[in-house]
Write a protein that binds this DNA or RNA. Structure first.
Lengths: 338, 338
DNA sequence: ACCGTGCGTCGAAGCGTTTCGATTCAGCAT
DNA sequence: ATGCTGAATCGAAACGCTTCGACGCACGGT
């Protein structure tokens, strides 16, 4: 590989001139710049990333901590990841993908492999937070832990999403509703989005004085079937459900049908999932979009802001929007009918 | 951050002794090693990755080229990615994730950001191949291009998978079968797996003298519905199908049901998909597993082999296995019944 | 004619490792 | 005693880049 010295020699200038021409940190005459560019072109020169990192103390690499824990939907994760990579790429950064958090933060951070970190799958009392707070490098969480002190976060406002979903059903007159939620492992870990979603749903239901239930549901056909069966047998009054579980969603709907509950005539459904999931169902479902790709890109933007300016924490919560696709109907006039 | 010099001072040895102690490339007395380790511990020292890369000409980072093109299933991609990251991690490597191939290969490779590359979403005449062949760094393809000369590849043997799937139906007596395949974009790009799958299916059908059809299918409910509808109306004789399209699979099955075709009584189904997809369907489906995670890990192993030894190309094709889950039934005695 | 003032360029000092010769010293055969 | 050998350690030279402080020079103001 050609080095900057080769370029300098060939262009007949000094080493530092090439560097300044490349970085633009000092003025270089048009003529000189032209010669340098020609030399670079001819030699196929690329700056050595390691040398650059050593000298400049930056790598132009962002670390992405995306633990692949059980119960999370790979499709959804990949959407976030895609957003992060896209955003990073268009800002001139590359992405180092880390899936095990056992010491990963300390390692990549301590050895200066990355300039900054994006951390996914945040739990309410996440163990990684203390480390992140004292880190030299800035970080952005995708998710919202209980204590955001000194941290930057971005996520869909799941609390609001929970409220919004519940209210959509409540204002349609449903007086008994249920949340088909994340898998039990996810709930037990107090994964931030699951907790917040449940809280929003619960609060809105309570406030409205409606009967409600929350059913953690395994991300599989079996899980969906189990939850629907439970629902139908123990809470036959339920006429509206919120489904916050991408993998279970299609099976929930088909299981309802098998129970003779038509959507939306007998059962109203609001989903919380990426749009791509909602529209690919056989019957379109009214849903609150999880703008995964957008959030991923936003995380990168925030990170770049943090690297440029003073590292002041900020929690950015994207407001949920509901898109009507006809899976919610008004409840029958007599509230607790059937 | 502490440097190796700090460690040396604190341990009362020279700089190079610390380095040798760390790398084990020269003998160091037990006593000295102990002191060095203590100093490292106390200082929380981590070698600077850039400096190391500069001095040693290796980064311990693998580049993963995973273009997110339309028509590919994110869930499946993520399984491959997971396998790669897991494998890399356990071999002491990190993974740089690249999703746009516009010049990415040249960039990360030319600037010595990675020691090696894994390339996904291989097309039959992939444009990236010439560059890969002349690269200083070794690479492994996940997929199988037409000309494997000088390259290392690993993938499921999709040709065999196509044959195996078709034969499973043919030996059950079905004389008219169809392949519900990858989306048309994927087919038109001549994505390696789609091409090979089709070839295997076609060859086996032809050889057996059976009637057959291939229907590229969009990865959505609508695509599934369209293909099933086409099939039912234009080829009513078809009594067995192979589905090689993860996203469409559930909708294919439910659409068949809507046409009054029961699985397996009226229609036998063989799927080609990751096991996790096959088992999460409401009705289990006989399937050929795409061992994505395994292939990802294997790619890393091959890559490490290439870095150690002489870089001789090798194409590793994993033989498909079919797992019976009861979605294939024998054809009615009279061949072209109905 | 003379002194700033920028502009464009250069030289050299790092940045933190690895690695290639030394060098020292003990132990051993001669 | 003497020379050898090998183990353990050291010093210094890369590795390829960024960046700081000079330096030369033309230019405008006085």
């Amino acid at each position: 590989m050609a080095t900057i010295e080769d370029v300098a020699r060939r262009a007949g200038v000094s080493l530092s001139t090439v560097s300044y021409s490349l970085s633009g940190k000092r003025p270089i005459s048009a003529e000189t710049r032209r010669r340098i560019e020609k030399a670079i072109e001819e030699l196929g020169y690329r700056p050595h990333a390691g040398a650059r990192a050593l000298a400049s103390a930056r790598t132009d690499v962002i670390g992405l901590l995306a633990p692949l824990r059980t119960g999370v939907d790979l499709h959804v994760i990949m959407q976030f990841v895609g957003g992060v990579v896209t955003g990073a790429s268009s800002a001139g950064y590359d992405v180092l993908l880390l899936t095990q958090d056992e010491g990963s933060v300390a390692r990549v951070t301590g050895s200066s492999m990355v300039d900054a970190l994006i951390v996914m799958d945040i739990e309410d009392e996440d163990e990684r937070l203390p480390a992140l707070r004292t880190l030299a490098q800035p970080s952005v969480l995708i998710g919202l832990p209980r204590d955001v002190h000194g941290l930057s976060c971005v996520d869909l406002d799941f609390t609001q999403a929970g409220e919004l979903a519940a209210r959509r059903l409540l204002t349609a007159g449903h007086r008994s509703i249920a949340l088909i939620g994340s898998p039990v492992e996810v709930v037990e870990r107090h994964t931030s989005y699951a907790d917040r979603m449940m809280r929003g749903f619960t609060d809105a239901s309570t406030e409205a004085g409606a009967a409600f239930a929350v059913l953690p549901t395994d991300a599989s056909a079996a899980g969906a079937v189990a939850s629907v069966d439970t629902l139908v047998s123990t809470m036959p009054d339920v006429t509206g459900i919120v489904v916050h579980n991408e993998s279970a969603l299609p099976h929930v709907i088909s299981r309802l049908r098998e129970h003779g509950r038509r959507v939306p005539e007998d059962m109203s459904v609001v989903a919380v999932c990426p749009e791509s999931v909602a529209v690919s169902l056989p019957t379109p479902v009214t849903s609150i979009d999880i703008p995964a790709e957008f959030i991923g890109r936003t995380a990168v933007e925030m990170l770049i802001g943090l690297m440029r300016d003073s590292p002041r924490g900020e929690a950015r919560l994207v407001s949920p929007r509901i898109v009507e696709r006809g899976s919610v109907a008004d409840a029958p006039a007599s509230a607790s009918a059937r």
